[in-house]
Write a protein that binds this DNA or RNA. Sequence first.
DNA 1: GATAAAGTTTACGTAAACGTAAAGTAAATT
DNA 2: AATTTACTTTACGTTTACGTAAACTTTATC
Lengths: 142, 142
Amino acid sequence: MAEKTTYSISELAKEFDVTTRSVRFYEDQGLLKPARRGQTRIFSSKDRVRLKLILRGKRMGFSLAETKELFDLWDETLTGNEKQLLKMLTILDNKRAQLEQQKNDIAQAEMEMDTAEARCREALADLQERKEKQQTSEQAGA
Amino acid sequence: MAEKTTYSISELAKEFDVTTRSVRFYEDQGLLKPARRGQTRIFSSKDRVRLKLILRGKRMGFSLAETKELFDLWDETLTGNEKQLLKMLTILDNKRAQLEQQKNDIAQAEMEMDTAEARCREALADLQERKEKQQTSEQAGA
DNA sequence: GATAAAGTTTACGTAAACGTAAAGTAAATT
DNA sequence: AATTTACTTTACGTTTACGTAAACTTTATC
């Protein structure tokens, strides 16, 4: 049961629910580097992983340029250059700080959504009460 | 010690580290509704809160349009219309789902950053070893 | 062999979120 | 009175992340 190793552009597009245009654009920007058979793009499972990372990055508010920077840096670490490795470590630190900020933001947002929901439910309950009162007063009047 | 209740555009810009251009743009898009003294904008603490929410939203990857939608909906809930209240509740649910997705994304990213950092540190350790070996061999050769 | 289906390049168009002058007003300072 | 300082509006420019159309090739199907 080996993992599938190559993908067509439309296979990837369908799997991740993006347009082929987007995939080609990501290649154009240097985020994907599919092989070619003639003109046709052939995506590897590495490309697939990168696409997944691109999209997650987008959901997290990262620009394509930011994501590309990470990809490039990561590739450079494979050369083992000490300077690059250290740079990668500090960048990882920065990203961690960003994630902390995002977690805080999310926690705040969740709290505010809790109080917002509570207020909505109260307002709805009030409306219900009024409805019932109106019904009883109608009964009394009948 | 009452909270300050009004702010100039540059006060807000400085506090939140955005340009006055951005603040004016947010007003233009209907996200802020400062009062005026003559032509000059006078921002209330409500405006200040909204600006804070706008920026948090941006950090979380929300567009201005999305944030505006939330603002508008929230304002509408104050009228107490039942339909609006129910709509608000379902939208809150959707946003919660989004936040869950983001939390998953963040958790995934953190894990991958852990392994990335580990690989960096290993590579650095390898480099250190080689350096030391070279030094000892130099000593032996001398 | 025609024709559809999936792929390609090239290129212009667009929405979002501002940046960046340009030109003017209004109040405070020298 | 002149100038600095903080505002204002108007409006064109820019970047990002694609959409969309045109014109073409390659492969599969009838």
